[in-house]
């Protein structure tokens, strides 16, 4: 039970901290102009709301394809500055995705080898996606608004509607599923792809970690290191809290993390905004805290 908690919470922490470290040391290859703003947040929210229905409607191979494209592009984005070469980054991405698919086919999506590789890939996805948004000028205000809106969405989609549960069951048949997960070694759940059963998984959604990480990065940029660290700590505490309730068996239904994290993001933003009166721009942040190394 605690093994699952430690692995999943550990991966969540690694994602947050990797995103943080990457933000300080590397520049992603982003478009020459264009800034992430509220219209983009609105588009993201629309996407987040509609994609589950799309995934539930499309055939599995199409869903797998979409997941593959998303994972490949974000991991490539994250790796390219690290490896200083397009081909090296591309080969590593393809290798990781290939390994993920091969292990899913060979061992099944609840095998530990598959989950290790999948969780590692998701760390890169978090790093790539969050740094693209944060380095493209996303404001902490917009990240807080996104978090607040997702509070409403996550609560309804998880507790009021069956869509999240159905989506999870569907995605758990595929490689590259967007969950940091580990077998909980307690009971089984029906294997949707067969007549048998598979170990139950303790998991936290990729999306929750992405939102938590991008909020921490934008808070760092906007209000400085203390604000960013508080955001990291609050996010980790919230995720760990939810995971401990699930892993201990005290709660057996899905917990929408954003229901709790979203309001905490808004409170944090309001506090730091009141303290500093305005957010720094990315340029002001880099002037005040120059990057130790440019990619």
């Amino acid at each position: 039970m605690w093994e699952a908690f430690l692995v999943v919470a550990g991966y969540a922490a690694v994602s947050l901290l990797a995103g943080w470290g990457y933000f300080r040391h590397y520049r992603v290859n982003k478009p020459a102009f264009g800034v992430v703003g509220l219209p983009d947040v609105a588009i993201m929210l629309t996407f987040i709301t509609l994609v589950p229905y799309l995934y539930l409607t499309l055939p599995l191979w199409a869903v797998a394809g979409l997941l593959g494209v998303g994972v490949l592009s974000t991991t490539y984005l994250a790796l390219q500055p690290l490896l200083r070469g397009r081909w090296a980054a591309a080969l590593l991405c393809l290798g990781l995705v290939g390994a993920d698919v091969a292990l899913a086919v060979g061992q099944g999506v609840t095998g530990t080898a598959f989950l290790l590789v999948n969780d590692t890939i998701l760390v890169l996805v978090v790093v790539g996606a969050t740094n693209l948004w944060a380095q493209s000028g996303m404001k902490a205000r917009d990240a807080a608004i996104l978090g607040g809106a997702l509070t409403v969405y996550d609560t309804i989609a998880t507790w009021q509607l069956p869509v999240t549960t159905k989506l999870l069951h569907r995605l758990l048949q595929l490689p590259l599923f967007p969950l940091f997960a580990w077998p909980i070694h307690r009971g089984t759940i029906p294997d949707i792809g067969s007549a048998g059963a598979v170990p139950q998984l303790l998991s936290v959604g990729l999306g929750d970690i992405v939102i938590a990480t991008v909020f921490a990065l934008t808070m760092r940029k906007a209000f400085g290191r203390p604000a960013g660290l508080v955001a990291v700590a609050v996010a980790l505490a919230t995720v760990a809290g939810a995971l401990s309730l699930l892993s201990s068996g005290l709660v057996t239904t899905a917990i929408p993390v954003m229901t709790f994290l979203g309001p905490l993001m808004i409170v944090q933003y309001a506090y730091w905004r009141r303290t500093y009166h305005r957010e720094r721009t990315t340029w002001q942040y880099l002037q005040a805290e120059p990057q130790p190394r440019q990619a």
Partner: peptide
């Protein structure tokens, strides 16, 4: 917006 936020274009 890019110049204002990031200080310069890419």
């Amino acid at each position: 917006a890019t110049i204002e936020e990031l200080g310069a274009l890419g």
